[in-house]
Design a protein around this nucleic acid. Structure first.
Length: 811
DNA sequence: CCATATCGGGG
DNA sequence: GTGTACGATATGG
């Protein structure tokens, strides 16, 4: 019998002779790798029945199909959506046999199954109250194994010591570069991996490549072939023994690519600590790459799903994200030139680029790790999963974990058909006070702190508290569901499961925020972040058709209460003489005019006196200047669209949608420049002059061709296209010229002059001598800035007037 | 107007 | 994975 303290980091299970074995991979406090095996946990689910519970339990007990059988049945008093129920707990021998057990169970009539869609490993963590990454003590027997771990223990007892996470995890980030003669569309069947860069803890640096050249860079290491490169890749990871192997979009690109190239040489990517090969799972076109026991984290997923909401950028490539989060950029090098440089053997710069990407990824990861760790501790699922979850999944798994503490049975995931009907149901959303479009000075933004969650708590909103009893309940304002006016009632006799949980999240966060005011503690900051993330996503979750705890009634009531509160607040502000220019959901924007900042403080106090429970209105920020744009009324759910500059000169742009990569550089530059001129200098005329000068340049053909290139990717082979867009037409021309194009190729084109359809005027950049000035003015530049200028009081036509007509003089 | 196609991240 | 879940936007017809 041995005792070990360790941090469980990853979990999976295997079935050996129909006995499931949970495997916790982790690290001991003295840095040894360990695999702890628990063979005592069994899969189970719940069965509900209206009547004859005992009889049904007996029938279930007899179930056996192939080598799978029910081990035990037991009747428990449980709750389902806050209602007391009696339910049969059905325990069976092997999770692999679930389908076979289900087949037999389905023969019994008038029953329903619950918690059938909770994976075995996740259930283990929840039931055993095991929080990954925190310190546990296990007692058990050492067992023999051929795993890549220091020891393997069969668990007898396991208990938590504390909730500290592993102090200095070993991190290794990596990035590959691929031979790219056709640009972005690299083909795994033929295009070799030319280099792999690593950056890790203790300033570990390495770039491996198989083209030799003279260099004094010590981190560059040469091998003889791509085959050796891949072998070296495996070798480095095995020797480094990282706790976290991290990358940027490595789920979707690097690892699947390495796998494909490895299969050419028939090398197994046996990186798993149990010597298993890397596994890929695909959901639609979203890939996940998992290595048993070795935690691979694709930081892009976390950024795209969770961090994105708090970022200014709408583009989530490594460069944009590191610029915003780290204030650092990728190395400025034309990656399209890699193939040529490789052929010449002149690739040192690309090695630097490659390493730098790994460095950036490493830094991004270390920045975000505290947030990930706190989410793991809050939700209780492995960091591998947390890193890839969407908002909805974070909320859901937090609820599932808490449900067990409340003796609540978790509702089933909706079936596809349920989702389809839910999608059709509608309710009214947030109140939007359409901004009076314009450029304003001295703007103040106020907002309700966690408005929706605080309403859920204040009004006890939840599927389980929803009632017909109008007496002992909170009454929603008049609201509209499926086009029909009505009210909903939520009992206040007993606090509901979700309101309790949100109250807990909010009060915990408020306490932490108080502490943070006194002391800047990064750990507390991350904790506050985790609490906020889950709390703020809860309303959206209730209205999300795929949610287990979906409740349209709740979602509709929450927005109705919110509309009422915000409208009252606006009214009050106006009564006190403030000029409200804009309001959306939980915020109010005021122009100070002759009022002072102190008047705002007094107003906040007045409002907060009257608010129930945890609800609170607070100051968001002061802004010296701001521009507000209204979306066209035809667009549903008017969205935020404004830009502000704060007292420190930071520009905050909200809602100017992603200018996608299929826009020209020209359009992107013009929009950015115009916003800058307006906010920093407040000079409409100058902005107008700028755009006119650009339009003039376009008409005089002064714009360099590279700024006009539009890029679109071919998603399937050319023959498959029914609708021939401009890029398809260009691809056909490329084929005629024996150029290599196919699914995945990026087609670059410029729209040339002429009277034909746009697609017939799309030309290859190198063949295009003269571009269609009107197209670029009307389809690129004008759409990028027209709304901004409308706001400033100019019509689209005025942008198009020539300099002479508008008498603006020279620019 | 509806229907269909594409993008994202990666090189 | 005890499978079965993207969401927003542009172009063609």
């Amino acid at each position: 019998m041995v005792k070990v303290e360790f941090y469980p980091m990853d979990i999976d299970y295997i079935s050996e002779e129909n006995v499931p074995k949970i495997r916790l991979f982790g690290k001991t406090i003295d840095g040894k790798r360990i695999c702890a095996i628990d063979s005592k946990f069994r899969p189970y689910f719940w069965v509900f029945a209206e009547k004859n519970l005992e009889k049904i339990a007996k029938d279930i007990k007899k179930i056996k199909n192939k080598e799978y059988f029910v081990e035990n049945v037991e009747i428990f008093d449980k709750k389902f959506l806050d209602v007391d129920v009696r339910a049969i707990k059905v325990t069976f021998n092997d999770p692999k046999g679930f389908q076979d057990i289900k087949e037999k169970i389905n023969e019994i009539r008038d029953i329903s199954k619950k918690e059938v869609d909770i994976s075995f490993t996740r259930r283990y963590l929840i039931d055993k109250k095991i929080t990954p990454l925190t310190l546990y003590e296990i007692e058990g027997e050492l067992i023999k194994n051929d795993f890549d771990v220091d020891y393997c223990i069969e668990i007898d007892k396991i208990k938590q010591i504390n909730d500290d996470v592993i102090a200095n995890p070993k991190i290794l980030s990596f990035d590959i570069e691929v031979y790219n003669p056709r640009g972005k569309s690299v083909k795994g069947e033929e295009d070799e991996i030319v280099m792999i860069g690593f950056y890790g803890s203790d300033d570990y640096k390495k770039v491996i490549t198989w083209k030799k050249f003279k260099t004094n860079k010590k981190y560059i290491e040469f091998v003889n072939s791509e085959l050796e490169l891949i072998e070296k890749f495996i070798d480095i990871i095995k020797k480094f023994k990282p706790d976290y192997l991290v990358g940027y979009y490595t789920d979707g690109f690097d690892l699947p690519y390495i796998k494909q190239r490895a299969s050419v040489y028939k090398i197994p990517l046996d990186l798993g600590l149990d010597n298993s090969i890397i596994k890929f799972s695909k959901r639609r076109d979203l890939i996940t790459s998992k290595i048993t026991g070795l935690i691979h984290l694709d930081i892009f997923k976390f950024i795209r799903h969770i961090v994105a909401g708090s970022l200014q950028t709408n583009i989530y490539d490594l460069n944009s994200v590191t610029q915003e989060l780290l204030n650092e950029s990728k190395k400025d090098i034309e990656i399209n030139g890699l193939a040529k440089a490789w052929d010449k053997g002149d690739i040192e710069e690309f090695c630097e680029y490659n390493l730098h990407d790994a460095v950036l990824t490493y830094r991004l990861f270390t920045n975000l790790l505290p947030n990930l760790e706190e989410l793991v501790k809050l939700i209780g699922q492995p960091i591998f999963d947390i890193c890839r979850m969407t908002y909805g999944q974070l909320v859901e798994w937090y609820l599932i974990k808490r449900a067990r503490e409340f003796n609540e049975i978790t509702p089933n995931r909706p079936k596809y058909s349920d989702i389809a009907t839910r999608v059709l149901r509608t309710y009214k959303g947030a109140f939007v006070f359409e901004p009076k479009p314009g450029l304003y000075e001295n703007v103040v933004m106020l907002d309700y702190k966690s408005l929706y969650p605080s309403i859920i708590v204040a009004k006890n909103i939840y599927l389980g508290t929803l009632t017909d009893d109008k007496k002992n309940s909170y009454e929603s304002p008049l609201l509209e569901v499926d086009g029909e006016e009505r009210r909903y009632y939520f009992s206040y006799k007993k606090e509901g499961f979700i309101p309790i949980i949100l109250k807990d999240l909010i009060t915990r966060r408020n306490r932490i925020r108080e502490l943070l005011k006194k002391e800047k503690n990064p750990l507390l900051k991350a904790r506050s972040y985790a609490l906020k993330t889950v709390a703020n996503a809860s309303y959206g979750y209730l209205g999300f058709p795929g949610a287990r705890w979906y409740s349209l009634e709740s979602a509709a009531s929450i927005t109705a209460f919110a509309r009422e509160y915000i409208q009252k607040t606006i009214k009050l502000a106006q009564d006190k003489g403030f000029e409200v220019i804009y309001s959306d959901t939980d915020s109010i924007t005021i122009v100070l005019r002759n009022k002072k900042k102190e008047d705002i403080s007094r107003f906040l106090k007045d409002v907060n006196k009257e608010l129930p429970s945890l609800m609170e209105l607070e100051l968001e920020n002061f802004y010296p200047r701001g521009i507000f744009v209204s979306k066209k009324s035809s667009e549903k759910g008017a969205k935020k669209k404004y830009a502000l500059i704060d007292e420190q000169g930071n520009i905050k742009v909200i809602g100017f949608e992603a200018i996608r990569s299929d826009w020209s550089i020209l359009a992107r530059t013009v929009q950015r420049k115009v916003l800058e001129i307006i906010l920093k200098e407040g000079d409409k005329e100058k902005a107008l002059k700028y755009v006119k000068s650009v339009i003039e340049d376009i008409k005089n053909k002064k714009i360099p061709m590279n700024e006009l290139i539009i890029q679109t990717q071919l998603r399937k082979s050319i023959e498959e296209y029914e609708q021939r867009g401009p890029h398809v037409a260009v691809a056909e021309k490329m084929l005629e010229k024996d150029m290599i194009v196919g699914a995945g190729s990026t087609i670059r084109y410029i729209i040339s002059e002429g009277k034909e359809k746009i697609r017939d005027r799309a030309k290859l950049p190198e063949e295009c001598k003269s571009y269609d000035a009107d197209y670029y003015v009307n389809n690129q530049v004008i759409p990028a800035v027209s709304q901004l200028f409308e706001v400033l009081g100019y019509k689209k036509e005025e942008l198009l007037e020539s300099k002479e007509q508008s008498k603006l003089g020279d620019f």
